[in-house]
Every structure is written in structure tokens, then in C-alpha cells.
Design a protein around this nucleic acid. Structure first.
Lengths: 364, 364
DNA sequence: ATGAAAGCGCTAACAT
DNA sequence: ATGTTAGCGCTTTCAT
């Protein structure tokens, strides 16, 4: 995954002669001068305008090709107030789910000629606002955002959206803004996870989840509750543990697990609502010598490919992250490139996938 | 980790009235007009030039503050040919090592007021070139790069570097370019891993690694060989398996593992040289019912925090990824902000950390 | 079919 | 202390 060279800690000598002089990249002006044309003619020739003679076009095109001319995107952005780039705002890239979503986004963006600028909020509202602002000022043509756990005020996004910046939400969305959205079917995901535990014989099922105001949290909680209700199990508030930052810091998860273990009537299973929470829970239980699944069953929302080599292999609810990214990017492009103001927005819900492994199946 | 909302598959209606009109962000000109000043006065006042009277400054500053004025970074870039942003070129962000490096980079960048643009090559030379070019044309002030596995020609980077674009390499570096570099001590990492297996009683130790021309590959291989030699074990070429893309695709790893298992004299342990290779190897062995560590010991280079919940817990060589990112970014800033052309470059080598777990310790 | 000029937002050299 | 002007690279009216 990483790397290195020959000897250790060496210091080589060399002079970078031109550190002040910057890439005198070739411009339209250079071409014009060389060919004795005006810059406007060159510009038009380059974009194949019909009012330029075939010969001139050929001349310009060939010369440009020869010099490997590349239009300056910055100048273009300044002029056109668009950049053929889009911005992504997520909390963390060091996360299976989000990095897979990003790959999905990129796969579509690349095909359609858009560049992608990734930014991380690290679950901080302040960082999210700063990133959003920066991306907008960089003239991104649109934004793909999954809200930070701290975000409850959407004015930074609302203002941009009102001014016409296309925004598509994915994963952590908000009802307060009308635009395209893409989510996994979290309700069903949690429902299936919980039902599976019930059917496997677990009776007191806890739910380890993220900040309570997040859309994903609400939805998953609703699925969990519905499954309990449908199978005649009581709902107990004390079995729900919220981790403000979704387990971004391990200690958060650890405390929640300890709180569950300390309950007078200890749960015999847990549904973990995120990648970090799932692995964190497994880690915490292992450290406390709580045997999984015999002492405690687990099903976790995770997009890790490693679930099957965990000890024990982790029953997982997998979100279609890559497709979510693809769909979100397609939606965004649709808004960006639509001639007319959008009139109806869509919320696309993609199915999750439950894979049963040892962590949720009692050995006996 | 992910998210969702209330009901499924709904379609809401709303009109985005201004999708054509773009953020009429407030400009220096607006301020000038409103205050009856010239744009240059405003500009100077904004950056606190000493030749502007205190009152004017106050006036401008307050008005700008009130209107929440933000300078347009695109215009700035066009003018100054710098952007206070830097570009990162890595193969994959869906990788513990790289996402941790990126976090290190960002932590320093944020403090110093630089923005970070992340791009992925997906181990494709072509993509690496395209990304590099794009970043340069976007006037990034510098580049932080870890080479793709396909890259053997460095002219795309060399040209930019010759033109004065500061570049710092990390992880996968090249001897062919003189600049700052940051790497883990891969030689020692591999040496320790191999020696540890030897001391644990393993006799035929294989090495599962990345493309042979990569700096990291050479270095780790050297460490592996040195450890064998120092302990009187023979080196056998057949025990080295190269995965062209470093296990980016699982099948690659699987084939390599199968090749090792098919050897007449099967190895009894393996040193895996990357995150993907380590976990891929563990997965492949599990599927083939090869017991770890009894049938096969493993030590893997990995930055996963999950190594201890693997089955079995994986003995790991951990690279100081976060620090590597910090150091690389600091070095880059040093080049960017140095008044004089750089004259001597440094290659910083940071220590790896071996953590012994069950995968490399025979049970008996 | 081609050119001249203006303008995107900003800074800086050059007046005054 | 403040204003005028030019220019970064490009597109696009508006001439010609």
C-alpha cells in the first residue's frame, strides 16, 4: 500500500532553477501572434465556429495540436462562471461507504467530462460550511453532499441553492431542502437486520446508532422499531445508544457499548448503524471478552469487504454505495445541464443487502 | 456511515427559479461603487495596505464584512497564477494508508490556509497524467504525489517540475526526480516482519508484493532478503509473487496465493506488502481452509485499525501514514513559500511499527 | 470571414 | 492617500 526507496534518511542536492517562473503555458494569444491572426479568430477556430474558413481552422487546429495547447480552465471559469467540475462534501473519506460512493461519482464524472473535487467535513459543521463556500467560490457547477453530523442549519446550502447552484444530497439528507436525493433503503436495511436477529433467537436487541437528528438515524431507528413491533417485542428506549459522531472517535463507541453492557437487563444482540460503529462494537466486545454471537449477536451496517474475515465474520447490511454515487452524479448532471429550471425533484431509494455471517447466528 | 429519510421513493415538486442566474457574489467593484471609491482603493484597504487612511480602511472593512464579501479565488488565481491550493495524486482513497496520509496532509494544509484537491489515478498511468495536468492547469501551488503502479515514465511530472511547480513525493517515489520525498522505512518494516516470522519458527517464507518496479516493492523486497540472509535462510525467487496492481482487484491476490499454495514445496508463511494484499491473502486462505497461522503464518503491511478483529488477528507492519502526510505537506509548503530556488532536497524516512498478533505465532 | 474591444474579479505599476 | 489603467486567458458582442 505504501512505499520507499533505497537508503534511509539521505539528503540529495539539486537546484530547481525556475521556482519563481511559472508554467508559461501556451495561450490563444501565442497562437494568434504566431499565425498572424486575432485572438478571437483563434478562439473561434478552436471551438469550430462555422464562421471561420476551413483553411484557417485547419491552420489553427494543427498549430494548437503541435504546441499541445490546452485552454486555461481558470480563465474559462472566470469568464463563464462554470468550471466543468463538481464538488463533493462528505464527513470522511477514510470510510468504506464514502470512498465507494466517491468512486461511483467519479466513474460517471469521468465519462461525462467533469472533474471532481473532494472535501471532508470531519463531522464539523464549521468545516462543512467552509468547504461549501470554498467550492462555490471555485465555481463548481454543482455539489454532491452528505451532511455532517453537526449540521442542523442548512442556510449555507440553501443560499447557494437559491442562487441556482445545483445540489444533490446523498446518504445523509434533509427534508428542509427540495432537490434530488439518493439514499439507501435504511428502513428496510434496519428492519431486515433486526428481524434476522429475532428469527435467530435473540430477544433483547439493542441499537447502536449515530446522532439522533440525522436522516439515516431516524430511518434506521424506524426500521428497527417496526421489526420489533411486527414480532411482538417491546421497544425500550434504554436499548438505543446514540453516538454523536457516529463512532468517528473510537472512545464514543466504547462508552456506548459499556453503557449497554452495564444495563441491568443486558441486551443479547445489537444492530449497529454504521461502519465505524459496527467495527468499533466488535472491537469493544472482543476486548471485554464478550463472546459474539453467544453472549451478544451483532448485525452491522458496513460496506467493508473485510466483514468475512472478522472474528467472527460479521453479518452485514451493505449499502449500494457505488451505485448511489453513480445515481447522485447522474442526477446532478441532469440538473446542471437542464435548459429549464427544474420543476420536480426525486428521492431515489436503493436497496440494501443483508449478508448473514456468524456474528448473528447462535452456535448451538 | 450512511443514511436516508422518511418514506421511500417519493417525488416532490419544487421550482428552482434561478438555475440560470449564477451567484452574483459581491465584488470589489460593488463595494467601490457603494462607497464612492475606486476598486484599487478598496482592494488595498481590504489587504490592509499602509497607504490607505485608517478611516477609509475601516469604512471598507466594515462594509465588506457586512456584505460578507469573499474575494473570488478564480480571479485571484488567474491574476497571480497561484491558488493557495495544492493537489494530491494517489492511486486510491479507498485505502487505509492513503486516506490516513490525506488526513495528515489536510491537517497541516488547513492550519496553513491551503486547500487540498484530491485526485485518484486508480493505478492507471493515463489517469495519473490527466489528473496531474488538470491540477496544474488549475494553478495548484504544488503537488503531493504517490505514483501509480503503471507509471514508469515521469515526463508529465518532470515537465511541471522543471517549469517550477513544487512537487513532493510520498510513499511511492522515484529516484529519477530530485525533490523532497517522504517514505516509511520499508526496508526495516519488511526486515522486522520477516525476522519475526523466522523467530516464530517459520522456515519457508513467501513474499506477496506489488509491481516489481515500484520503489516500495524494491525496498520491502530488500528488507525481506536481508532478514533471510541474516538468519541463514536461502532466498528463492519462486516464493516472491508480484501483483501488478497491488491487489487492487481481489482476483490478482487470489491467483498469487493459489500459485504459492501450488508450489511443490509450499511456503509456511508469507509477508504481504500492502493493505489490500494482506487482507486479500487472509481472505483467500480462509476460503481455501488453510489455517492461519498453523498452516500458514502471515505478517502484513496494513494501516487498518481492524487488524485486531480479523480472524485471526493480523500481525501488522504499520506505516506512520498521518505523520507522513503532515511531513509531506510541510515540505511542500516549504518549497512553495521559499523565496529562493531550492538547492537541496531531502528524503525523510519514518519508522514503521510491528504489532505482533496471532497470525504469526504458532499455536502450539 | 475576420478583427477590435469589452469584460469576468482582482492586483499593481503608474499617475496625481 | 487615492485614482487610472493595464493585464491575467478567454469568449463574445459588435464592427468591418
Amino acid at each position: 500500500m505504501t512505499t520507499r526507496e533505497e537508503s534511509a534518511g539521505c539528503t540529495s542536492k539539486n537546484v530547481n532553477l525556475v521556482s519563481a517562473m511559472k508554467f508559461e503555458a501556451i495561450t490563444i494569444k501565442d497562437i494568434a501572434k504566431a499565425l498572424g491572426l486575432s485572438t478571437s479568430t483563434v478562439s473561434r477556430a478552436l471551438r469550430g465556429s462555422y464562421e471561420i474558413s476551413a483553411e484557417t481552422k485547419k491552420l489553427v487546429l494543427e498549430y494548437a495540436e503541435k504546441l499541445n495547447y490546452r485552454p486555461n480552465p481558470i480563465a474559462l471559469s472566470l469568464k463563464e462562471k462554470r468550471s466543468r467540475s463538481i464538488g463533493i462534501v462528505v464527513c470522511e473519506i477514510a470510510n468504506n461507504f464514502f470512498s465507494q460512493v466517491i468512486n461511483g461519482i467519479e466513474s460517471v464524472a469521468y465519462k461525462k467530462g467533469y472533474y471532481v473535487i473532494i472535501s471532508q467535513s470531519h463531522e464539523s459543521y464549521e468545516r462543512e460550511v467552509a468547504n461549501t463556500q470554498y467550492l462555490a467560490s471555485r465555481s463548481v457547477d454543482g455539489l454532491l453532499v452528505s451532511l455532517s453530523t453537526e449540521t442542523t442549519d442548512f442556510s449555507h446550502l440553501n443560499k447557494l441553492h437559491d442562487k441556482g447552484l445545483p445540489i444533490v444530497f446523498f446518504d445523509r439528507i434533509t427534508e428542509e431542502m427540495q432537490t434530488h436525493k439518493v439514499i439507501a433503503n435504511n428502513f428496510n436495511g434496519a428492519y431486515q437486520a433486526t428481524e434476522h436477529l429475532i428469527k435467530s433467537g435473540f430477544k433483547r436487541i439493542a441499537h447502536l446508532t449515530i446522532a439522533s437528528h440525522l436522516s439515516i438515524t431516524k430511518e434506521r431507528l424506524a426500521g428497527y422499531k417496526a421489526a420489533l413491533a411486527d414480532h411482538g417485542l417491546p421497544f425500550e428506549e434504554s436499548l438505543i445508544k446514540y453516538c454523536r459522531y457516529g463512532g468517528l472517535v473510537y472512545s464514543e463507541t466504547e462508552q456506548a457499548v459499556d453503557a449497554l453492557l452495564a444495563l441491568k437487563k443486558r441486551p443479547d444482540a445489537v444492530v449497529a448503524a454504521s461502519d465505524k460503529l459496527s467495527t468499533g462494537c466488535l472491537t469493544a466486545l472482543a476486548k471485554r471478552k464478550v463472546r459474539v454471537p453467544d453472549d451478544m449477536g451483532i448485525v452491522g451496517f458496513t460496506n467493508s469487504q473485510l466483514a468475512e474475515i472478522f472474528h467472527p465474520p460479521l453479518t452485514s447490511v451493505r449499502q449500494p454505495a457505488f451505485e448511489m454515487g453513480q445515481v447522485a452524479m447522474e442526477m446532478l448532471i441532469q440538473i446542471i445541464e437542464s435548459k429549464h429550471p427544474m420543476t420536480n425533484y426525486e428521492t431515489k431509494v436503493l436497496n440494501t443487502e443483508l449478508t448473514v455471517r456468524a456474528s448473528s447466528v447462535k452456535s448451538k
